[in-house]
Design a binder for these strands. Structure first.
Lengths: 102, 102
DNA sequence: GAAAACTAGTTTTTTATACAAACCTGTTTG
DNA sequence: CAAACAGGTTTGTATAAAAAACTAGTTTTC
């Protein structure tokens, strides 16, 4: 019984942080999103969004493309295949937990 | 769409920590459990179990009764009504997230 | 045309906290 | 009676989330 619960302690910590969960959930739905869009949607500060994005990038969960829109910098983010798989696995684990504890 | 995702950032942080999620999930199933039992089931060290239990107690999510079994101290934990409600709400929020991101 | 305000971020500092290690009090065992 | 064990608590440390400060350039205002 509880051994399945215990598997929660090995959950993907990168995705288990709500700020990053939201970022990844958005990216899972939109093909690509820019920094400003992500900031509006998540409600995060620029600074925190920036560091969360860097962590996701370091993990290989997202790709970041830096370019320009007109004269302003534009930071485009998209989920990698690895990120998508991790997100799917994460959701599966959550669902199993919820089902198990009914 | 994303406004629902954003609600994740207000998730109950106390329950969102996997170690505590497991503790509470166990307590939700067993009426009451002692320290040694919880340690075996969760795999936590005594020290960490102790501090997590204290946090849950401070939040009013569990009650801790200190007594003796024979000559040895016995720490009994049980979920409070408040804890049970919080746990139910937490699971509901997880489920909604999983459903929304399908 | 220069100061002020704004865009789009990054870096640094602060604060919180999870985990590990050490410690404590009493009991049993060799 | 010393060492090991039971059942914990307290303290120390390292990570990391959040807040604040900073950067680099652009547009607006006076």
């Amino acid at each position: 019984m509880t051994n399945d619960l215990r598997s929660l302690t090995e959950i993907d910590r990168l995705l288990h942080e709500p700020a990053r969960t939201v970022i990844v959930a958005i990216l899972a739905a939109v093909e690509s999103a820019d920094f400003v869009f992500l900031q509006r949607e998540t409600g995060l500060t620029k600074g925190n969004l920036s560091t969360h994005l860097t962590k996701l990038e370091d993990a290989g969960y997202i790709e970041i493309q830096k370019t320009f829109r007109g004269k302003y910098p534009l930071t485009l983010c998209r989920l990698t295949e690895q990120g998508r798989k991790a997100f799917t696995a994460y959701r599966k684990q959550l669902l199993e937990f919820v089902e198990r504890t009914k």
